[in-house]
Design a protein around this nucleic acid. Sequence first.
DNA 1: TAAATTGTACTATTACACTTAATACAGATT
DNA 2: AATCTGTATTAAGTGTAATAGTACAATTTA
Lengths: 123, 123
Amino acid sequence: MIITLEPNSKMPIYAQIVQCVKSVVMTGKLRAHEQIPSVRMTARELNINPNTVQKAYALLEKEGILYSVAGKGDFVADNAAHIKEMRKQEIKDLFINATREARDSGLWIDEIFAIVDEAYSGK
Amino acid sequence: MIITLEPNSKMPIYAQIVQCVKSVVMTGKLRAHEQIPSVRMTARELNINPNTVQKAYALLEKEGILYSVAGKGDFVADNAAHIKEMRKQEIKDLFINATREARDSGLWIDEIFAIVDEAYSGK
DNA sequence: TAAATTGTACTATTACACTTAATACAGATT
DNA sequence: AATCTGTATTAAGTGTAATAGTACAATTTA
């Protein structure tokens, strides 16, 4: 099963699907022009409504990660590099936000470095 | 004005207030047993509904960061150290999560340090 | 050719979170 | 006495998430 969900997550299902597909594409589990499980197929496997999957796929297509062919299905787009850059920017925003909160809370930058260092080398 | 909001933020207003008060307490702008602006006062200054402020204050009281005295107001609790540890752990989790995603996406730790460094000194 | 599968587009409904609004009450301050 | 404080209640409006059902055109498959 390519797409998986975490029932405990507070993230909306459609957002989990979006993130999952991005990871699958980035890590090369699915390459350019390979087919991704259909809307109905995925909905059946995950026990969710097809509309929820469709929403995720529509977003992914809007971001240029998938492209759709009527009657055939959805396929991985041919711009993995672009996707990687986008993902990088998303992660950058995560750190920018976390750093701002940390600074506002009185943490020194050395404390942040220590946390990151431990998390990076750790499990 | 002790409590401020970011209109662009997607965070709920009550959550922004909670976070803001935590920062104010952690950085020592308000010390133990000092009074925090009243529910109605804050609501007036921020142009929001008193109920929204009340919700934030109730949460802060539940977490032991504030305590209320009927007819007088809300005050900073006497466990700043504990609060600081709690908030620190929250921020730590932010960085741990971000770092994990970053590493999985192929970012080097030096890149992360650069991002943090810029965000910390930058605007 | 006929059946099944594909993406896509609707509409309707349910549920929940966030926010505003308008009161009301009891305690404390001025 | 008037004004402030926190607290509680009910109601309404808004937006998002998710489910449900239906329909249509294009493609694949048997």
